[in-house]
Amino acid sequence: MRRRCLLFVLLVLVFCAAQGAKAEKLTVALSSDHIVIDSNFNGARLTIFGDVERDTRDFLYGRYDLIMVVRGPSGAVTMREKIRSGLFWLNGDEHVFKTAPSFLAILSDRPIVEIVDYGNQQRLGGSIEAQVARGTGEGETDFSSALIRIRRAQGLFVDEPGAITFLSPTLFRAAIRLPGYAPLGAYEIETEAFADGLPVGHTTTAFSVRRSGIEHRLAVAAKDHGVLYGLAVIIMALSMGLIASVIFRRD
């Protein structure tokens, strides 16, 4: 009976210790939870503030590290390869990724290889390549590396070690830059805190990118009421043509 009791206490202690290592509370707040695209939209900057709440029972007192993965809505992407046929460069092979991430940002406070070991990197998908492979469910091919190259050039896939800065040992700030081409939809931010290479806290936040009232209404009208929208464009064009003919009348 005594031994059983001791075992139980021991188990509880072990459990608490194991929990203790993961007991840091991670709080993250965004400067805004939705980004509105209006006619002046030329990209946006989203600031994330956060705090790692240190657990008093914690054995680990090293510095914290953070890795943040931002994922945009996923959707189908058609890849085409131009090949030379005779004189011309024409579209040749084609490949469709059914679920490719439309936006990816991997932020950290220092290079990920310095933060975690290989195993944790694998688990986290701490590279654009790993995130794309995870999103598409396909291995690395010419098409997937081309997709990454193109999206990187467009600023839609970014990895920025150093985008997260610690303002105090526990308080941090990160900046996400969304380019003008940022796709619409729901974005997910996965933040993971590490101490001495071990995961100690994890949290997920979200924000959305959407068109502002008038841009959204125009785009919806163009899609859902094509004929009416077309008539509106025609009426606009003809009345401007008419006005021009009155203003600039020469005879």
């Binding site: 996923s74 959707g75 189908a76 992407v77 085409r80 010419d142 081309a146 193109i150 796709p183």
Partner: peptide
Amino acid sequence: PFQASRTDVG
């Protein structure tokens, strides 16, 4: 030589 075009995202 590669081109990527989104076909169903917003």
